[in-house]
Design a protein around this nucleic acid. Structure first.
Lengths: 99, 99
DNA sequence: GGCCGTTATAGCATTGCTGCTATGACATGG
DNA sequence: CCATGTCATAGCAGCAATGCTATAACGGCC
């Protein structure tokens, strides 16, 4: 039933769910955050395993996250941000405001 | 010692956990996001029930969220943002950068 | 008093993210 | 070829957030 594996397919499906504009947004957000973390990590020359250790998680969790396999939770994002020495910003902004 | 209810106490406990700086951050983030949503909602003159309906959740979920009872997930934040006609911003920023 | 609208909480089922181990694929260097 | 390092993925246990109903507590208002 669940097709619990295959993150890419899972994400595709999530993005394709009818009338799930916000679910789509969440999936895209997950994807972009994954990419951002990968960039920050590679800029530091760290392996996934190193980042995982710093963030108190496992290499597989980092890989899953970077691939956008799941929509991350705020605690995880906080841990990653702390390890990468950046700050996590989560807030609501006016729709027209530039980033 | 379950005390599964009583969100305030739960949050206090989470923030007091030894060596859980990021968990603390997540709890504080939850609290601030809850306040932000409450402000946006009241500015529109909406009841929790109205916002809940727009965001496809129940009034109790909105109340729990506004009280900072749990650390919200990104899909929920996206739905609330969409209903309140604001955009959700989640990103990593340099530590010293001003908001 | 009763009635209604709103918010706060309780208690539970479901969902789905995380944590983990193990393993596969793929390079690179010996 | 073999060893090592890195990243990707499967599969599952555990658990926290969500989704839900029902209800209590606090108003106003008639």
């Amino acid at each position: 039933m669940g097709e619990r594996g295959d993150w890419a397919a899972m994400r595709e499906r999530r993005m394709a769910e009818p009338g799930a504009a916000e679910a789509y947004d969440a999936a895209r957000l997950a994807f972009e955050l994954g990419r951002a973390v990968r960039e920050l990590r590679e800029r530091r020359g760290w392996s996934q395993a190193q980042l995982a250790k710093e963030s108190r998680m496992t290499q597989s969790a980092v890989a899953r996250f970077e691939a956008g396999g799941t929509v991350p939770t705020l605690p995880v994002l906080e841990r990653l941000a702390a390890s990468l020495n950046v700050s996590l910003s989560v807030r609501f902004e006016p729709r027209d405001a530039a980033a």
